[in-house]
Simulated assay, not measured.
Amino acid sequence: MTETDVTRVTHRIDVAAPADAVYRIVSDVSLWPLYFPPTVRAERTAGDDSDERIRIWAVAHGEVRTWESRRRLDRAAREVRFEQTRPSDPVAAMGGRWEVRERGDGDCTVVLDHHYRAVGDDPSALARIADAVETNSVSELSHLRLAAERAGSEDELLLDFSDTEVIPGPAADVYDFLYDAAKWPERLPHVVRLDLRENVTGLQYMEMDTRAPDGSVHTTVSGRVCTPGRRIVYKQTRLPPVLRAHNGEWLLEDAGDGTVRVTARHQVVLNPEGIAALPEPPASLGAARDAVRHSLGSNSRATLARAKAFATAR
């Protein structure tokens, strides 16, 4: 790339939290699905805390996209430099830098730089990339600030729970039921409507209307990353007002004797403002936690029961 080929853009935000606490979130990509709405899944694939390779799956323009990046981390400078190693069309090259600057009053400023090019320097592709960088950068920075500033209350707002079912039959049959979400409205009583888009096999974007135990219907938008026969990871990017984040996964493991152990896991961050705005808000945060656990768990258990019936009938 030459300087004239590259588009450069900078975003920044002030955060009322210590620089080290903010850098921890920036540097640990395993936290990103919880804190950054576009990120469905993120993991380190090689390296260490100073030089690593990561893979990210994220929602952009109504689809799930994935890429690999190399990151160089400088803890002393609170800086992370990144460069995509395998950009996907229409991105020809993408890189940048996170920098967390201490302000001297216990707060900090986060600077996020990007540089990028479009395949063939196509103007329409460049516009799509610019829009995605702008949208995701603004979202990531605002949610980074929110996560860092609410760190003291994180334990009481975070729920991490799971439900498990042992199902007779091959994992492939259970996986097929969970993967073929387009058929859920006819298979699952709590799913009212579901629109699914899958431009790349295994990367799904879906909009779903779900009926809660109290009879109310909520619309959610999710990205899903599907690993055949083993795992489906998902992230809700449009949420009911009582939640700030909701990540989940369906995990399939061999349980022996021709059975498969299926675990439905949820990781949720509550939204106190959304809870308080309900027509009949729960009496306490603990009651809200119980209500969310019951609602999500009920739907997961219903799905597991139907998956079991589907697999045993084949």
Rank of each mutant, 00 (worst) to 15 (best):
D214K: 04
V200I: 14
G248T: 03
V233E: 12
T220N: 10
R261N: 00
T210P: 05
K235Y: 02
P228Q: 07
G258E: 01
V192S: 02
D214Y: 05
E198N: 09
P228L: 08
V260H: 03
K183S: 13
Q267H: 11
L239F: 03
V260M: 00
L178E: 07
P240E: 13
R244M: 15
T220W: 15
A245F: 00
Q267V: 14
Q267D: 08
L239I: 00
R261H: 06
A264P: 04
R231M: 12
M208L: 08
L203G: 09
L239T: 03
R265W: 04
V192N: 07
V191N: 09
D176L: 06
Q236M: 13
N247S: 12
A181E: 12
E249F: 09
R244N: 11
G256R: 06
N199Y: 14
Q236C: 11
Q267Y: 07
T220R: 15
V200S: 15
L239H: 03
R230M: 07
W250Q: 02
G215Q: 02
P240M: 10
V217I: 09
N247R: 13
H190W: 09
Q267T: 10
G223M: 11
R193V: 08
L188R: 08
R211M: 05
A255V: 00
Q236E: 14
D195I: 08
Q204R: 15
Q204L: 06
K183I: 09
D254Y: 06
D254N: 10
R187M: 03
P189W: 11
G248F: 06
L252Y: 05
D180G: 05
Y179E: 02
R211F: 04
V191A: 10
I232H: 11
W184I: 04
V233G: 11
A245V: 02
R238M: 15
R238P: 08
L188F: 07
G215K: 04
G215W: 01
T201A: 15
A181W: 12
L178I: 07
V260C: 02
D195F: 14
V192P: 06
Y234D: 05
T237N: 01
E249L: 10
L188A: 09
N199T: 14
D195T: 14
K235S: 08
Q204K: 14
G223E: 02
R197C: 07
R224H: 10
W250D: 01
R197L: 06
D180W: 11
G248S: 05
D257M: 03
G223W: 02
